[in-house]
């Protein structure tokens, strides 16, 4: 479903988009890294994760073209097995992997997967944010690690059916070095992210279950009236938090709803931590002012003390030696 179009139709267009400068630069960097049959990429891989293996001289770069994602995934699985049997270095450029998510097959396209002579498969992620003096933006590295962990899980499904294979839990992150366009690489251990993703996948509500729970006739067609769409979006449970703004096209719509309802989460998740069962701005302020709320509730007690202390300080009556 196109959430951006849906957001525009709801009257809260999302301020997303990618600058073409960043886009061009990202593509150019990836092309540079993979140029020349992946020589530079394999050099970095060998340097960081080569173990004792001999430096790659001949690198097999199998052709992965096939019709449709299913075909490409099958082709990738076959290429992986062949490369492993061949017992040398191989680089799979933009392979296609399949993973079942919430009961439906999802297709994933890592930047590259490398096959080592010893049968190890390593996920390679190429990103255009820089590594400056060996460190990089931790939020971006974290996102890359979570993304790679999904690929690792998908690769493990194929590896289960292949003999003598180990899917590496350390992935190779390739980025521009300092302020240049030269590639450099760092090894990222994704065991944590893999464990988390595996549990998330196991717990994910099946898409069919979400669809089955929706009222009959629910539609997300952007051509419909905003009222119809509003009702449709409402019928899918979702909890707004300010973090959504950076991630979801519908966040501004959800924020408007949350604010209209006076939900305290609109001010951030941490705000709610100390408010206990009070969930609306009105209820909290009424409790603080002594108009509502159970005086035995610790939240209410704390709120009233906070309100009194704040008022005292603002009135300046706290003057003391």
């Amino acid at each position: 479903m196109d959430k951006a179009a849906l957001a525009t139709a709801l009257g809260s267009p999302a301020p997303f988009g990618q600058s073409q400068f960043a886009f061009v630069r990202g593509n150019a960097f990836e092309a540079k890294v993979k140029a020349d049959g992946g020589t530079e990429l394999m050099r970095l891989l060998h340097e960081r994760l080569g173990g004792g293996a001999e430096a790659p001289r001949e690198v097999l770069v199998p052709d992965l073209t096939a019709a449709g994602p299913e075909g490409r995934a099958a082709r990738t699985a076959l290429a992986l097995r062949e490369a492993t049997e061949a017992g040398g270095w191989a680089l799979l450029d933009h392979p296609m992997l399949a993973l079942e998510v919430a009961g439906s097959p999802t297709y994933l396209e890592p930047d590259a997967v490398a096959v080592h002579p010893d049968g190890t498969w390593t996920v390679v992620e190429i990103k255009s944010f820089p590594m400056i003096d060996g460190s990089a933006d931790a939020a971006k590295v974290g996102a890359a690690a979570r993304q790679s962990a999904v690929y690792v899980l998908a690769l493990e499904r194929i590896a289960e059916l292949t003999e003598g294979v180990e899917v590496g839990h350390r992935v190779l992150l390739v980025c521009p070095k300092d302020f240049s366009n030269l590639p450099t690489a760092s090894v990222v251990d994704v065991r944590k992210q893999r464990a988390v993703t595996r549990r998330q996948l196991a717990r994910l509500t099946r898409i069919e279950d979400i669809a089955a729970a929706l009222p009959e006739g629910t539609t997300f067609d952007p051509e419909c009236s905003p009222q119809q769409l509003d009702a449709a979006v409402e019928s899918v449970g979702a909890t707004y938090a300010p973090e959504c703004l950076a991630a979801c096209e519908l966040a501004f719509h959800c924020r408007a709803k949350a604010r209209a309802a006076g939900a305290v989460e609109a001010l951030g998740r941490s705000v709610r931590g100390e408010l206990g069962g009070l969930t609306t701005v009105g209820a909290v302020l009424a409790a603080a002012a002594g108009k509502e709320g159970d005086p035995a509730d610790p939240t209410v007690v704390a709120l009233r003390r906070a309100a009194a202390l704040r008022a005292e300080a603002l009135e300046g009556s706290a003057a003391c030696r």
Partner: peptide, 20 residues
Amino acid sequence: MSLISTLARLEAVESGRAQP
């Protein structure tokens, strides 16, 4: 976030103005 600053934020919501 301390309860006092949370309260200030909520007062800002209600009044439509930032609070000290």
